[in-house]
Design a protein around this nucleic acid. Structure first.
Lengths: 221, 221
DNA sequence: TAGTCAATAATCCATTTGGATAGTTCTTTT
DNA sequence: AAAAGAACTATCCAAATGGATTATTGACTA
């Protein structure tokens, strides 16, 4: 089963979306939310093993709009796929949503069959679903942009961090605390703490934020 | 009738494409070519009233490849729509083709029905046809490009952080603690803490590391 | 003029963190 | 076999953090 969450301020819209999904029995709507705040609150209370796989997100909502919600949640939950499902197709929103971390952008006018097919495809092959007219707009945007700059070469490992330490540094960057990291790695939080202190020593810093700064700046994560 | 030209170095491929188009009776293949040179020669001999409406262009061809042919012909005949029809989906080719002036990019694996639908749609609404997997790659490309805020236009502040909060977020990212930040800004560490908590609420996180993660990922700092 | 909001400040309290120190176990290297 | 290094665990303690709450000021707005 593919776990879905639906975020839309209109109950009626959520019903319609759920109805369209019911064309297939592969989907299970595990929760719904009426705006970005409610969504972020609800997802924060979920254990990581109960997180949804795909979020269907409307953009026009009170309080926090869908783009901000995607920006926040896609950082916190990188494994979740965010798919915009809206009636709007203005360039700004498309671009903002993609930059915010959306994997796909579907128009509500799409039929249930198309939506189901595209979501299944997203789940199985990782290809983000995009409505044709949206694809065309994206193409137009790309056409007007300049060619990309070739990336520079990185040389990690100058800090002599052990494998375990790198692992823990990544989890620190995720925002986990000692206990949570210990749970994930099946070790004591005391051990996690020991590793952290070793990391700080090797990076020549004395707190987490400084270590994360170096980690981000030097591309360790 | 929509006038079509097919450019592909394999006769067999041209036959297959023509076959797929015959699903609809709206299309008329007015000429074919086996490489870019031949195509450019043939189209040059046509009177402007007999020009094709849409060119279906393979990319891998001898002499002059499809991208070069599109680049030249799209300049000479701006009214003609150029659609890439190929088996390749590498990022470089997609990007080059779009820059060269292609209106669409279809994979040969698409069914005749899909191709016909998309070409009709191109003709009627101007929306360029793009295979879903290509659309996804384009989206990925767009995602990794820099935001087009060359000089004046700042992107909207989706997190609604106040000026002071942004200032403090930057200092947090430097690795400073409440007291140090307070000293720098000439305010009480209590106030700094209050700002931090407000920041966490707006970002929907509950500790510093998570806030920094979003800040780094979303380019707030 | 009343209301809202940003910024300031403080207090209480529980939790988390950083630092130091002291071990054990296991593997790899010498 | 001894040495070195990693990963692991633990305890003590002081400092820093986060959360909730309350309150004052000044600026902008309805």
């Amino acid at each position: 089963m593919i776990r879905i969450a639906i975020v839309d301020d209109k109950l009626r819209n959520r019903r319609i979306v759920a109805e369209k999904l019911s064309v297939s029995n592969r989907f299970q709507v595990i929760f719904e939310a009426g705006d970005g705040n409610e969504f972020l609150d609800k997802i924060r209370t979920l254990e990581s093993s109960h997180l949804p796989d795909i979020i269907l997100m409307d953009l026009e909502m009170p309080e926090i709009n869908g783009i901000a919600a995607i920006a926040i949640a896609s950082s916190l939950y990188p494994a979740i796929k965010f798919v915009v499902l809206t009636v709007f197709d203005d360039d700004d929103k498309i671009f903002s949503a993609i930059k915010a971390g959306a994997s796909g952008y579907l128009l509500k006018e799409e039929s249930g069959g198309v939506i189901v097919d595209m979501l299944l495809n997203l789940w199985e092959s990782g290809a983000g679903p995009i409505s044709p007219s949206i694809a065309y707009k994206i193409l137009q945007m790309l056409k007007t942009r300049e060619t990309p700059n070739a990336g520079g070469s990185e040389q990690p490992d100058i800090f002599q961090l052990s494998q375990r330490e790198k692992e823990i540094l990544e989890l620190l960057a995720e925002g986990f605390e000692y206990k949570e990291i210990g749970d994930r790695l099946f070790i004591s939080p005391n051990t996690v703490k020991k590793h952290c202190i070793s990391i700080y020593q090797k990076l020549h810093v004395n707190n987490r934020a400084q270590a994360l700064k170096i980690a981000y700046m030097k591309g360790l994560i």
